[in-house]
Amino acid sequence: MSSRAEWVINAPNAVSEVIDGELVVINLEKGRYYSSEGIGSYLWQCVEQQVRADAALAALTDGFGLAPERARSDMEAFLEALRREGLIREAGPDDILTSDAPGVSGQAYAPPELKVYSDMQDLLLLDPIHDVGEEGWPVKPRTPAE
């Protein structure tokens, strides 16, 4: 996959929200839940706003002072994870793209990571107060071995 490819959200299968900086996404077709913080959330917003890949890449390199190769590699890996999960699709001729990337806030850079919760049906049955870790649903409590 190249950052020259343009991506848009695979609606209506993928629905998302950014909750206090944390991206949460559901693939309604697959019944999977995802989350990502920091740069992952930023890149999702870029895809959601149909920002051209080169513009998003420029925002990462300029905003965080990253080497272009590193920014490209991190971004492509994240977009590939989104594509593999059916959350984004390649833009078509009817999709209107923009070169205006959203501003990068003053956060520290960390490579974007997509957390995948594939057992959503079971997760929905969890008591979100008592059956979860301190981070809250859907994160289960850590066992002592962890």
Partner: peptide
């Protein structure tokens, strides 16, 4: 506070359930 994560979890859960219900 220490409970914020769990409270946020109830929000995430309601959000996910509502989307599934609507869909």
């Amino acid at each position: 506070d220490a409970l914020t994560g769990r409270l946020k979890g109830t929000y995430r859960l309601a959000w996910a359930k509502n989307h599934r219900l609507f869909d």
